[in-house]
């Protein structure tokens, strides 16, 4: 006959249980946010694309372009002269 034993969540609980001790109270608690089960978070400092002519800081989206690089699209817009900061009436 096979008897199933409960699996302890942590090794300390098993050892402490045998001795009638709660091991979790004998060790210093760590409260760091990252751990082996923590998901990698992409929250961090936002990447800045630049500033508009009126001073608003424009951020880059976290999604990456697939058909061109950031450098290539900037060059395209510079070449075509169609950026927002171009105030000429020709673009309207």
């Amino acid at each position: 006959m096979v008897t199933m034993l409960p699996i302890p969540a942590r090794a300390g609980e098993l050892e402490g249980g045998k001795l009638g001790l709660n091991m979790s109270t004998m060790t210093k608690k760590h409260t760091t946010k990252s751990g082996p089960l923590a998901k990698p978070s992409r929250v961090g400092n936002p990447k800045i694309a630049g500033k508009t002519s009126d001073g608003v800081v424009v951020l880059r989206a976290k999604a990456k372009p697939t058909h061109f690089t950031a450098k290539q699209i900037r060059e395209t817009i510079q070449r075509t002269g169609l950026a927002l900061s171009d105030k000429s009436t020709a673009r309207r």
């Binding site: 694309a49 630049g50 500033k51 508009t52 424009v58 951020l59 880059r60 989206a61 999604a63 990456k64 372009p65 697939t66 058909h67 061109f68 950031a70 699209i73 900037r74 817009i77 510079q78 075509t80 002269g81 169609l82 950026a83 927002l84 900061s85 171009d86």
Partner: peptide, 20 residues
Amino acid sequence: DELTFGDFAELVAAYLTVDP
């Protein structure tokens, strides 16, 4: 209509900030 979300966002960011 071929632009992905990432393409569009990068294009807009460049459009808003590039000094031609």
